[in-house]
Amino acid sequence: MEKMALKYSSYKSEKAEIVDIKKLTENEKLFRVVLKNKGSLDHEPGQFVMVSLYGIGEIPISVCSSPMISDYFELCVRAVGKVTRSMHKLKKGDEIGIRGPYGKGFPVRILEGNDLLIIAGGLGLAPLRSLITYVLDNRRDFGKVHLLFGCKEPKDMLFSDELEQWNKRTDMHYSCTVDRASPDWAGNVGVITTLIPGVDIEPSKTFAAIVGPPVMYNFVIKELIAKGIPEQNILLSFERNMKCGNGKCGRCQIQNLYCCQDGPVFNYEQIKNLSEAI
């Protein structure tokens, strides 16, 4: 077998440096990353990158910082698998590989001028944070902004400092709920769907953006449709196993759609008849 260097490869990453690491919860860390030889990542909210730890593997992680920041980007990583656990052992100054951004994110231009209902379950807040921060950075381009957040327990709450700030803002409505309260918890207890009926929006001019665990989607969508939000205005982002990001390896396929290229953000009308979607 002969070997030839490839000038173009769909699998080669950019060198990137971890410039800051912040522990968010027991299981989640926030990594601030700078591309070494390239300027901005230039992503859209909701897009993802392939993160390489050479010798261990490569995984898709959604970008969780605003595209308005061009000096760096942030990745929120939960330690669940081989690569993510190893990533948690990395230190400031360590190098990783980055490919991307990949996929179709939230269609922010289409969202402009509309009300937004952002619904995040657990780690789903990470990809939505790129949308939320983008919207807040361009706040006057949007109508009302609601954020509903649900997680298992108060200690699992991601970005708690930011949630607190968002809670204080007058140009954004925030409410959250937990599945199980701790003794010092004074907020809502229960599933996230219980928060939806109370939201004050004009359904016909509202876009909903939902990211959360697989089990959450059907319940939330049902509630949103009951509220009168049009199907094509319900935006969902899916988590799938991905190896290539190029629409080839086949793992992220939902029937005829490749999550990595056609998604990960879809509108409900696109996928409602696809049995393997939700």
Binding site: G55, I56, K82, R85, S86, K89
Partner: peptide, 8 residues
């Protein structure tokens, strides 16, 4: 190798 790398 996995042992040396500390990965499963």
């Amino acid at each position: 190798k996995a042992v040396l790398q500390g990965i499963p």
